[in-house]
């Protein structure tokens, strides 16, 4: 066990866990932020996507000991009231079915749009290919990302 001070959603969090613990479980079991989801544990599904600095990362592969001072943003911290342009677009398109993968989809999409604010359909498909939606809401996810991109550029 070891002590870590983490910057999560702008708040300093003190935790005492094994250094090998993935951020996914630090967030879910210790910080009690459960918006970040467990799907596969091997970086194949994207349900656990968070932001480390500006980058979308798979929190199931990010050990707590490797975070350092970089700020972490989770779905709970993406916006104050669910009004990030990507979240708003998700609401507009009524994207979700079961909803389980959507936090990961939104975190990946919001990081992607930060790096490419005017993407083509093909670029969206490539960027989002690591996030599985078992319900098959892919066409709505793509529409929502295009909507968010348009609204941000407006």
């Amino acid at each position: 066990m070891a002590n870590y001070t983490l910057n999560i959603n702008g708040v300093q969090q003190e935790i005492d866990v094994d250094p090998s613990t993935p951020m996914l479980w630090v967030l879910r079991d210790h910080i009690k932020l459960v918006g970040t989801k467990y799907g596969c544990g091997i970086a194949q599904c994207g349900a656990c996507t968070i932001h480390l600095g500006d980058d979308a990362v798979r929190s199931c592969q990010l050990t707590v000991s490797s975070v350092g001072e970089k700020p972490i943003t989770t779905i709970e911290g993406l916006s104050e009231n669910g009004d990030h342009p990507v979240q708003k677009a998700w609401l507009e398109e009524d994207v979700y079915q079961c909803g389980y993968c959507q936090a990961g989809q939104i975190m990946n999409a919001s990081a992607f749009l930060k790096s490419n604010s005017n993407p083509t359909e093909a670029e969206i498909e490539t960027a989002m290919n690591g996030n599985i939606c078992r319900c098959g809401t892919y066409t709505r996810i793509k529409k929502a990302i295009m909507r968010a991109a348009t609204s941000e550029n407006a």
Binding site: T36, G82, Q87
Partner: peptide, 12 residues
């Protein structure tokens, strides 16, 4: 729209 929409996109 889905009644749980806001809760889903904010990670409740």
């Amino acid at each position: 729209k889905n009644v749980d929409g806001l809760d889903i996109i904010t990670g409740k």
